[in-house]
């Protein structure tokens, strides 16, 4: 009897926790899963496209921007290799919406981050976006302020940069 009550309570608490995990709005990722299977490695490392080819703002703008379907089709309407097209990819591209890749900016409203300024200072994209597989999966890792500060204080081989609060916070 006693054990039964304990067990019931335990199950109740577990239920609460699981309910929270499954039914609350997720915090970790606001990136929508796309219907197009995409691998950064296939586009960047293997054929040497620059990040700016798809993320048009990456070197000049505050936001890097996500490509639209027409950006994909600029290349993919042509047979890209001597081998035949991949049927599953062709159909995925065909059925995709006009903006298949959608992300919500996860930067808090009181932080300003400008991609262009960092590119200008010769910081490569991989310096922050190293885990490209995580991005392909739609679960991009969170960046924390400590990682910003490490560079800005000159601890990672870059010239020390602004560390006063009002440079990045508003």
């Amino acid at each position: 009897m006693k054990k039964g009550i304990f067990f019931l309570l335990f199950v109740f608490m577990l239920a609460l926790i699981f309910a929270d995990i499954f039914f609350s709005p997720s915090l970790a990722s606001n990136t929508k899963k796309t219907s197009i299977p995409f691998l950064h490695a296939l586009h960047g490392d293997s054929i040497g496209l620059s990040c700016e080819a798809c993320h048009s703002g990456a070197y000049t703008n505050r936001e890097a921007f996500m490509p639209s379907k027409s950006d994909c089709m600029d290349c993919h309407r042509l047979p890209l290799t001597e081998s035949e097209g991949i049927a599953s990819l062709d159909s995925a591209l065909k059925n995709a919406s006009e903006h298949p890749f959608q992300t919500k900016n996860r930067l808090p409203a009181h932080v300003v981050f400008h991609h262009g300024v960092h590119a200008k200072a010769n910081v490569s994209c991989e310096e922050c976006h190293s885990n490209e597989l995580a991005w392909d999966r739609g679960t991009p890792p969170l960046l924390l302020m400590n990682e910003c500060l490490a560079c800005h204080q000159g601890k990672r081989g870059f010239e020390a940069s602004a560390t006063d609060c009002a440079s990045c916070h508003r």
């Binding site: 006693k2 304990f6 309570l9 109740f12 608490m13 609460l16 926790i17 929270d20 609350s24």
Partner: peptide
């Protein structure tokens, strides 16, 4: 048993209340 289980329940609810909300 009552105090133990009541405490566990309270603790659980407290943790639940402290969770990060959207």
């Amino acid at each position: 048993t009552f105090i133990k289980s009541f405490g566990a329940l309270l603790g659980g609810l407290l943790l639940f209340g402290c969770r990060k909300q959207g």
